[in-house]
Simulated assay, not measured.
Amino acid sequence: MMNELIVTTTDFIPGREVIEILGIARGSTVRARNVGRDIIAGLKTLIGGEISEYTKLQANSRDQAFQRMIKDAKVLKADAIINVRFNTSMIMAGASEVMAYGTAVKLK
């Protein structure tokens, strides 16, 4: 039997059978921009191109939400998380929530 939690965006795992749905596994984080990044981003909007400061902020937010979702699935004693999705929403000006969620399942 596998010890590693399987995480996938599909609704099935080839060669494995879902025998129980445990519920939704979710993880989220709320992050705010900072003045230093905003100044640099403002300058980059004048010249164009990727705003790497925000790209890094979003990547870190997604990673943290993803890890929290996995932790939640382990609390549920899941073997896998299927149908994984990410969602981002603005909480207030300058702050957004990143959420990772999926269906925690037991496998045969």
Rank of each mutant, 00 (worst) to 15 (best):
N3Q: 08
N3P: 10
E4I: 12
I6P: 00
V7I: 14
V7M: 13
T8L: 00
T9S: 13
T9Q: 02
T10F: 12
T10A: 15
P14I: 11
P14E: 14
V18I: 14
I24S: 09
A25C: 11
A25K: 07
S28A: 13
V30C: 10
V30T: 08
R31E: 08
R33V: 08
N34L: 12
D38N: 09
I39F: 03
I40N: 07
G42Q: 15
T45H: 05
T45Y: 00
G49S: 09
G49K: 15
E53N: 09
L57R: 01
Q58S: 09
Q58G: 00
S61P: 07
R62P: 00
F66A: 00
F66E: 02
R68F: 08
I70L: 07
K74F: 02
V75T: 08
K77P: 04
K77C: 03
D79W: 00
D79M: 05
A80W: 02
A80L: 03
I81W: 01
I82M: 09
N83Q: 10
N83G: 09
N87M: 09
M90D: 03
M90F: 00
M92W: 05
G94C: 04
A95P: 01
S96D: 01
S96Y: 05
E97V: 06
E97H: 03
A100L: 12
G102N: 05
G102E: 08
T103L: 11
T103Y: 04
A104M: 08
A104F: 14
